[in-house]
Design a protein around this nucleic acid. Structure first.
Lengths: 131, 131
DNA sequence: CCGTATCCCAGAAGATACTG
DNA sequence: CAGTATCTTCTGGGATACGG
């Protein structure tokens, strides 16, 4: 029962998606549900602890659902985007587009040396189901 | 010349707009250019230091422009959204809408006790000029 | 009026080791 | 396979005081 107060809507959205690994986690989940080990494979540099943390937070915010299969030792845990999570599609696509554009502008203007690596704006998968 | 690498576009956007006060600063600037003291008046709880910090970062990212009037002691400093800053309109409006909706959902579901206070989704001012 | 310089703290995130 | 428990590190932001 988090007692959070946000001044404007943007802050609430930021609270949900900002986290060092959350955008990339959401990107992978937007393709299909993923097991913990799948996510670790996609994000080799994340530690177990932080991965679990970020997923827990997303679950608390109602963005992902956690399902456990198996009753003993080797478990199988699958994370799936909820309807609320999928509804982030529009936002994430807009943010992807703007981000890529902005990075280009900065570089062209010589103001920075930033770049966007393997940008699969794969969030577009989410746009179908929203209607 | 920040040497930044982002994995996906969303991360670049987040880097620009996430900051404790940035969404609210952008909201005020979306109405009209503002002096430093105007912003301090609108955001009474921010300290001088942090206000300057956030504005500097926005300026480095090409989101706002800083203009100084006066050559001695009592200066007048005005911050204005650049074209790049105004181009955030779509993103910010989408984030506002989603954020307000999400907070409502959480409360209705009894999952949290969050709220959005004085939400002027005032970012809509930015949507005209984008074309 | 506007900004900088210090010092300080809380929270986010990393490393590592251990359990069911 | 997944997750928890510690301990450490680092960064964003706050408080305060000073300077052009």
């Amino acid at each position: 029962m988090a007692k959070k107060t946000y001044n404007i809507g943007v802050e609430a959205t930021l609270a949900v998606i900002s986290g060092k690994w959350k955008p990339r986690i959401l990107c992978h989940l937007s393709v299909r549900p993923q097991r913990t080990c799948d996510l670790r494979h996609d994000l080799p540099e994340i530690s177990q602890k932080v991965l679990t943390q970020q997923l827990r937070e997303l679950a608390e915010d109602g963005i992902v659902e956690r399902q456990v299969y198996g009753d003993k030792a080797p478990f199988k845990v699958v994370y799936t985007l909820t309807a609320m999570g999928r509804s982030l599609g529009t936002v994430l696509v807009q943010m992807s587009i703007w981000g890529e554009h902005h990075v280009d502008e900065l570089r062209e203007a010589g103001l920075a040396d930033a770049s966007v690596q393997n940008d699969h704006s794969g969030f577009e998968n989410l746009l179908q189901s929203t209607t």
